[in-house]
């Protein structure tokens, strides 16, 4: 077989139009990191277990290692790079700092993207609900309690 031709993809990335070329077998994770230089999204397991590569695709959180770059034609994607604004950190980012909800930091972008999607959908989730929602994100440093507290703190600030 001839080497597969690259595919042109148009999508919305962190609220702005984006256009790029991807190999048809490249994951969205590779596309973000290696084609677009957005290295905030992390590679952990690369098989859908750890959630370090979590991004939002059309409003739903997905593991970007389990999506092909070619699949996002016409889609809207949000990554960790779109979370802070020029005015400052997102409340979740601030809360993670204040609650020491990270150590090595590899899992943090995934947790932040997942938690943001939860609070946008459900502003006042219970602790159990937060733990269930974040079950697809693994952290080997914190033991999770600090992460849960950081998310609860922002939820308690929500009107």
């Amino acid at each position: 077989m001839d080497s597969p031709k690259k595919i042109a993809v148009n999508c919305e990335l962190n609220g702005k139009p984006a256009e790029f070329l991807v190999a048809p077998y490249q994951s969205l994770l590779e596309t973000l990191r290696e084609v677009l230089g957005l290295t905030g999204t992390k590679e952990g397991c690369n098989d859908g277990n750890c959630g370090a590569c979590t991004v939002t695709l059309n409003g739903r959180i997905v593991d970007s290692c389990l999506v092909l770059g070619a699949e996002v034609e016409g889609a809207s994607i949000d990554t960790i790079e779109g979370m802070a604004t020029p005015d400052g950190l997102h409340p979740l980012q601030q809360s993670f700092l204040e609650e020491a909800a990270l150590q090595c930091g590899i899992c943090t972008p995934g947790f932040l993207v997942s938690a943001k999607a939860l609070l946008e959908r459900e502003p006042h989730p219970s602790e159990e609900r937060i733990r269930l929602w974040l079950a697809g994100n693994l952290c080997r440093c914190t033991g999770y309690d600090k992460i849960i507290r950081a998310v609860e703190k922002v939820a308690n600030q929500n009107s």
């Binding site: 077989m1 048809p24 098989d47 593991d63 290692c65 389990l66 092909l68 699949e71």
Partner: peptide, 26 residues
């Protein structure tokens, strides 16, 4: 055939088998 890909992409990456084309039916 590619639907969600949560099994298929893992299997391809693990070289369980090889294919020349993936057909996305979404």
């Amino acid at each position: 055939i590619l639907a969600g890909g949560t099994d298929l992409l893992v299997q391809l990456r693990g070289e369980r088998f090889e294919i020349d084309s993936i057909v996305d039916i979404k």
